[in-house]
Simulated scan of single mutants.
Amino acid sequence: MLRHCLLAVFFSLTIAHAAETKTRVALAGDSTVTDKAGWGAAFGKLLVPTAECLNFAGGGQSSKSFRDSGNWKKVIDSKPAFVLIQFGHNDMPGKGPQRETDPATTYSENLGHFIDEARAIGAQPILVTSLARRTFDNGKIRGELKPWAEAATKVAAEKKVPLVDLFTLSVELHNKLGLVESDTFNPPGKDGKHTDHTHLNAHGAEVIAKIIADELRKVAPDLAKLLK
């Protein structure tokens, strides 16, 4: 009986130690990064067993409100090895003063602060430009998030951090697929119809997560080691 108890304790400690020693990859972003409406969960599945994905993204979050709501502090407190940062959708005009930012000033400043603070705890920050909305004008993606994507690209260059240009890659993808095929990425909207051109269903999440993983293999070799 004593032997069985000791074995049980040993295995419990082993499992706990394994969980503690996993390399943490944190996600900071808006709803397009969440597990239910974005690419977060699909990306987590691409990590090796020795890594874990901690998703702090939230619906309606902007680069401003993510800090103000305390979500960024949760990212830092989780002590991740890597932090993927993607905002833009709720930084746009019309989202209210609690969320809106200007690409050339406040948005860039917010991203810069995220980078500096991640580095201060020994984490590797990685910027991800905004996922493009699948809204077409004359057969092409409208691309209204371009100013925020360009701002993130500039910050990444200035701060010398890896960049996944998801905006450009998703625009190229959906321009190639066209309207009908792009709609297969849509989750059901509030009306029950597949008219949500911003968020992702399971299929869309898998495609986008793979694109991100492929880019990380190019720009972030240390994180690439954690991908299957």
Rank of each mutant, 00 (worst) to 15 (best):
M1I: 05
C5V: 10
L6G: 08
V9R: 15
V9I: 15
F10I: 12
F10C: 12
F11I: 13
F11K: 13
A16W: 07
A16R: 10
H17E: 14
H17K: 14
T23A: 09
L27C: 11
S31T: 08
W39S: 02
A42K: 03
A42N: 03
F43H: 07
L46K: 13
L46V: 06
T50R: 15
T50D: 14
L54Y: 07
F56V: 02
A57E: 01
G60V: 00
S65R: 06
D68K: 15
W72G: 06
V75Y: 01
I76Y: 05
D77C: 07
S78T: 08
K79V: 00
K79R: 13
Q86W: 00
G88F: 03
H89M: 07
M92G: 12
K95R: 15
R99A: 13
E100Y: 11
E100A: 06
A104I: 07
T105S: 14
L111G: 01
F114H: 11
E117N: 11
A118I: 04
R119T: 00
G122D: 03
A123M: 00
L127T: 00
L127Y: 02
V128W: 00
R134C: 09
G139W: 08
I141N: 04
G143E: 05
L145D: 12
L145C: 10
K146Y: 07
P147R: 10
P147Q: 10
P147E: 07
W148M: 09
A152M: 01
T153L: 02
A156N: 11
A157Q: 13
E158M: 11
E158R: 14
K159Q: 11
V161A: 02
P162A: 12
D165H: 10
L166C: 02
L173Y: 07
N175D: 15
G178Q: 01
S182C: 04
P187L: 05
P188Y: 04
K193A: 09
D196W: 01
H197D: 14
H199A: 10
H199N: 14
N201I: 03
N201Y: 03
A202F: 03
E206S: 14
V207F: 02
I208M: 09
D214G: 08
K218V: 09
V219K: 13
P221H: 09
L223C: 08
L223N: 06
